[in-house]
Design a protein around this nucleic acid. Sequence first.
DNA 1: TCGTTTTCTTAACATAAGTCAAGGAAACGC
DNA 2: GCGTTTCCTTGACTTATGTTAAGAAAACGA
Lengths: 229, 229
Amino acid sequence: MKKAHEILIRSQLFGGLPQEHITEIEKIAVDKNYNKGDVIFYDGDEGNGFYLIVAGSVSVYKISPDGKEQIFHIVKEGETIGAAPVFSGKSFPANARALSKTHLLFFDRTKFIELISGKPDLTMNILALLSMRLREFTIQVENLSLKEIPGRLASYLLYLSQEQGNRDFVKLNISKLQLSNILGTVPESLSRALGNMKTRKLIEEEGASIRLLNRAELEELAERGKSFG
Amino acid sequence: MKKAHEILIRSQLFGGLPQEHITEIEKIAVDKNYNKGDVIFYDGDEGNGFYLIVAGSVSVYKISPDGKEQIFHIVKEGETIGAAPVFSGKSFPANARALSKTHLLFFDRTKFIELISGKPDLTMNILALLSMRLREFTIQVENLSLKEIPGRLASYLLYLSQEQGNRDFVKLNISKLQLSNILGTVPESLSRALGNMKTRKLIEEEGASIRLLNRAELEELAERGKSFG
DNA sequence: TCGTTTTCTTAACATAAGTCAAGGAAACGC
DNA sequence: GCGTTTCCTTGACTTATGTTAAGAAAACGA
């Protein structure tokens, strides 16, 4: 399919590879389609391969016994899910669920490992990918442990802004329930944090978007982590 | 040096490699020695190489503006620190500090990348290493977000027990301040959680070790995460 | 368009855990 | 061995955030 090819050659994982490698890669890729809410894999499932997202988005998350959800990552076009278990040889450490109609390419573990041998540039791409993911986890742990919810929210808004070209008008793209699950909290607390920011004129809500009114103070809040120091 | 060689060939990173590769690896390794408390690198430093621990132990951690410390990982003999930035090309995302007199081998980024090209078995070792680290981070995020302190403590004690051959008598090896920083809390709260477990006859403290008296309940506490469900 | 369902917000309340303070225990250096 | 420093514990207090409940707003489907 046309779109899958475009996404694939632009992905972090496969970007910059010579045409003959791309052709080989596409030969072992298998199309998979999911509807909103469909589970792609469960925590504990055998990690027999990984997925590249062609269209749609996927939430990688874990649920506590009492039902609270922590989202590790919202994965979008061109990004991968389940890559780590391919190399650690372990099961998936979390669940993955489609957030919308989603088109994936599945890569079988054995075939993929066979394929990468003798392709140092592809291997370096994988190393870079895993390293970046490690870096993101470092930030997530830091946020959960060292910042209170307003600080985490400020960090996330600034991150979103950066992702969207440093504009002051950022689109959320996800529900507030999901956002609260990314931040490691509940919708009520998120709502309060947002309300507080609005009162303090740090932000303005406009539909599903948020306008950053005072970037300096948001940055300080994100940096400080706590309301009072 | 004798010991460095022994550790190196048994490490996850270099274990199982042919002798000629080991020789090459040892050629680019540089000895570094640190005393207790010495900083090995700071958050933000350029990631110009990584370290393999030959003797001693190192804390990888981050500090909030108000001084609270979150330990990401206590790294011991045969393990590595700072590997991810070598491949992501970014700076170190945290600080590293020697917890005791520590002997390290330093591997220069450029030399190491040169060295791995054409060594698929070494590359696979690195992929496995990064993947395992990712898995550990998943658990850490889950613990911080979905479990309260007694649940995190129970998880950690069970993890320690497993690491020490599933014995009921586990050695802490680190100070309680450090333990509290691993669990994402403060010494006072840790002290209370331990006191509570002792009252409930789940554990017994004997010097710097802890005896697990009721594994079943500890496991339930770790699983449930919260005191009341 | 209307009614139903889901999502979001607000308020009152409960509680886990951080903070502050002080004393005791252990480790360390001389 | 003794004094000093660091580490650990305990208690009283504060606070951030989770919980419960209810209503408002928005999204959805017929």
